[in-house]
């Protein structure tokens, strides 16, 4: 249950949402993303009321452990599908695959991916359309040291032009953000 939460962020900024398990970090991110509707209150993104908004829009990129991908597709096919769905050009696909170390695995079925590789791919799918708001729910989960380095290298490169919200209990991820709110 989330109560009495109020904050505003301007572009660019970064916010860490911390709190114990069950405190509502994921729920808050999902409400911002438009996946869940708040029972009371509103979320406004660029003056757009989330009560009327659907999860599909170009403003947010979302990474979450709840997100499941298609085991029967390859990374390449999933990137092509995401780009076509979001009307994004695919010309940065190679760059993102290289950045997250998946170039050699692009034609491998996702059923053969490890959980860390799947997490890297989720990051690519969220970032490739270059949305102004990045909503990251425990983005470092399942990532090894190299994966985390790639993630933070990318986030560092875009932090001056994006709003980045990270729900986490990891100190490294929370410390990356300029602001912090704690739930629970």
């Amino acid at each position: 249950m989330l109560r009495d939460i109020s904050f505003s962020l301007s572009l660019p900024s970064s916010l860490a949402i911390t709190g114990p398990n069950g405190s509502g970090k994921t729920t808050l991110l999902e409400i911002i993303a438009g996946i869940q509707r708040p029972t009371k209150g509103t979320v406004r993104l660029f003056r757009d009321d989330t009560e009327l908004r659907r999860p599909w829009h170009h403003e947010t990129g979302y990474v979450s452990p709840r997100l499941r991908l298609y085991d029967e597709l390859t990374a390449q096919e999933l990137i092509e599908f995401t780009c076509a769905s979001r009307s994004t050009l695919r010309n940065r696909a190679d760059e993102f695959l290289a950045m997250f170390g998946l170039t050699g695995h692009r034609k491998k079925m996702l059923s053969r991916y490890s959980s860390g590789m799947a997490q890297r791919l989720k990051c690519i799918l969220a970032f490739i359309s270059e949305p102004p708001i990045l909503l990251l729910d425990e983005p470092g989960s399942n990532l090894d040291r190299e994966g985390k380095e790639a993630l933070f290298r990318y986030l560092e490169s875009v932090r001056s032009e994006r709003i980045i919200i990270i729900a986490t209990n990891e100190k490294e991820e929370a410390d990356f953000c300029g602001e912090r709110i704690s739930l629970g």
Binding site: A33, I35, R54, P55, W56, Y62, S64, R66, L67, R68, L69, Y70, D71, F81, T82, S85, R86
Partner: peptide, 10 residues
């Protein structure tokens, strides 16, 4: 399979 969330977002 839980892939509907991926579709809803994209």
């Amino acid at each position: 399979r839980g892939t509907s969330l991926f579709l809803r977002l994209n």
